[in-house]
Amino acid sequence: MTPAPDLTIRGSAAIGDALLFAPLTLTLAAGRWTCLLGGSGVGKTTILRLIAGLDTGADFTGQITASDRQPVPEQVAYMAQDDLLLPWATVAQNVLLGARLRREKPDLNRRDQLIERMRLQDHMGKKPGELSGGQRQRVALARTLMEDRPIVLLDEPFSALDARTRADMQDLAAEALQGRTVLLVTHDPGEAARLGQSILVMTQNGITPCHPPHAPAPRSVDDPETLEAQGALLRLLREDAA
């Protein structure tokens, strides 16, 4: 992997005549987790999709630049709420999807290492339909890691999981994605408080930076300061919605 760059988004987006978000500047620090927290419809997923170079249905005026001046979409790996595993392909094949789509020679050793790291070695030959929600998200994480990109975009990847599995996945992802520039889009204040090395709250009025708790991420689920931060973030979300 090339060293993770800083990423800066500067601009505004509109759908037709309606402004989706006003001019804003957002910086993702190199090699760190930035959590973008907000309710539905404020445009946080739009920002993530703009960085990934995906269609958004909105017109974006502005610039997205990486500090290493490389084209951004070629440096990102993407993980969504839906695990997006191909149901007809096995776990092993799904992990290798990127290489197959680019017609590259797949690195089988690396695949096996990642599958083992995600504790999926007993499921290599299974189809996604035979796995639990948590296992499926672990396959998706292995697929994301297989891409080995310096920037990782996470669009609420854990929000469909039950509380326990979600906490496990948060720990696993925080550890596995260390050293990459990560943008986690989420509507869950608890998730932002646990994982954010930088936390941004996005509302109709723009983006407000918040102080993350002092403990290193991933923070323990019952860390008092983390819980307090979670409360403060939720309060902020509710105030702005009112």
Binding site: V76, Y78, A80, L84, G98, L101, R102, E147
Partner: peptide, 9 residues
């Protein structure tokens, strides 16, 4: 979307 981020043709 996923395929696009993977630079697939």
């Amino acid at each position: 979307d996923l395929a696009r981020t993977m630079q697939a043709g």
